[in-house]
Nucleic acid binder design. Structure first.
Lengths: 260, 260
DNA sequence: GATCTCAAAATGTCCGTACATTCCGCCCCG
DNA sequence: CGGGGCGGAATGTACGGACATTTTGAGATC
């Protein structure tokens, strides 16, 4: 059960004290003796309860923090953040278009927006000139069914299209569709990049996942017929909560999408 | 530069001592004052050289270990394992078939194989009966150009097909193609799941990436016409070294793959 | 009721000490 | 030459102490 990182190939007969304490605390969390959101006893309390040094308590708590089960902050204490991984949402892709957009069972929730003049690095990503006026929108993606958080999105669009921001998440329609209908633009191609990343502290906190936990990272560039980028969105999904799944039908030397 | 995990949103004016030491050591590694493969001075030496406690040295080294720059073992010392992330490989997908198989510019290198009788959990994944004889093959995936490691694969196939294992990575042809040509089986469908995960110690060590670093995790089930699983492969790619990229052409209400 | 201040609670940083465990190289012996 | 044993070097575990920093709640004041 206890998965605190251990580099040694051969496990010792008896576990170190701090690992045993970590296992005991994890058991208590799994058995819901400490509910998610509740606060564990403080270090001093744990010291006396388990008759170990503060060092040992801290090492044990470090293990649990690495597992993402707890979060520790000065002045607050040690809060249980997870009992087990949340149930995973599987996004079935019935066609390649699924890579372009999300199903209707989830929705964006804007949590921030700012106008900016793009620096050199961002200009490269957006394929525009440096200093151009763009708008960054930060949003969370939730399942509509149970409001579960499944992603954090950073969305970039030209400032000229910023008028759609108010409608994002409020009105039916994806961001690029809003841009198309409001400004008469036309998305002709979408470039998709799929990789993985770790959640930083800000994103982890917003999603309620451990800092430095794994995220599936999908970046999309929506281009018009001239190749210009109309919209770029980068979404990080918690690995434990989101999976893309699809099926290919084998044919000749290629493959066709198998609709569900 | 220093990316040791820090939970605090607002950085203090001055960094803690251990972070400063970690930064100094990382700088020395980047500048190749300590080459990859070489051993850093021991804890006691660093204590006297930097005039800090052993505790502070250990915390600093822990940061570097988390970054994957060093590896620490009793009796050996602290070895530099990486100077910087390896350059990233972008796997361009010219068609949906790209999700089914890898391009010709990389190759599998088998590092282990074992016969097994599948337990309940694995039986569910392989959709076979518990106790059935299967073969697990562990392999690394390398770019042929520079031998760079881009993935770790766990491959499962029925023991009846184990005869192809010797040819994996030695002869041209993907695993499922080897099975097809050798045993007359026929892959009709491929189910693909894309998510993210963290590298455990074993996989991290084999790939030379940090423990608990992000991996893009792709699972493929190859099925015959009756739906039976002929082959399951699960590959973890280091996020910094591997990205899937493709482009969709917008059309009607769907999307078509844009060939490169 | 709202705001400010202060103290207590909690974790973070950093020092020190001691012993345990593992690895590796060297030396000795067969 | 090869194998085994031993010692030294190195990190890992665990104890203790002290002070710093952050958060929160209670109480006082306006």
């Amino acid at each position: 059960m206890l998965k605190c990182p251990d580099m040694r190939v051969n496990q010792p007969k008896s576990q170190p004290r701090y690992r045993r304490l970590a296992a005991a605390l994890q058991k208590a969390i799994v058995e819901a003796r400490y509910a998610v959101g509740s606060t564990l006893p403080g270090e001093l309390e744990l010291m006396s309860r388990y008759r170990v040094s503060r060092h040992t308590v801290r090492e044990a708590l470090r293990c649990l923090a690495e597992l993402g089960l707890i979060s520790r902050n000065r002045g607050i204490g040690t809060v249980v953040t997870a009992r087990e991984p949340a149930s995973a949402h599987v996004q079935k892709l019935a066609s390649p278009a699924g890579w372009m957009r999300y199903a209707e069972d989830s929705r964006l929730e804007v949590i921030g927006t700012e106008a900016l003049h793009v620096d050199a690095a961002l200009a490269r990503r957006l394929e525009c000139r440096r200093g151009a006026p763009w708008r960054r929108v930060t949003a969370l993606r939730r399942l509509t069914a149970d409001r579960a958080l499944i992603g954090w999105s950073d969305i970039y669009l030209p400032e000229a299209y910023a008028g759609v921001v108010g409608a994002v998440g409020r009105r039916a329609g994806r961001v690029y569709e809003l841009i198309e209908s409001r400004f008469g633009a036309r998305v002709a191609r979408v470039e998709v990049q799929v990789t993985a990343d770790l959640f930083d502290a800000q994103r982890a906190r917003a999603l309620g996942v451990p800092v430095n936990s794994a995220s599936l990272c999908v970046t999309r560039r929506y281009r018009d017929a001239t190749g210009q980028v109309l919209l770029l969105s980068q979404t990080q999904h918690p690995a434990e909560r989101f999976t893309y799944a699809f099926e290919l039908l084998r044919g000749g030397d290629g493959a066709a999408w198998l609709a569900a």
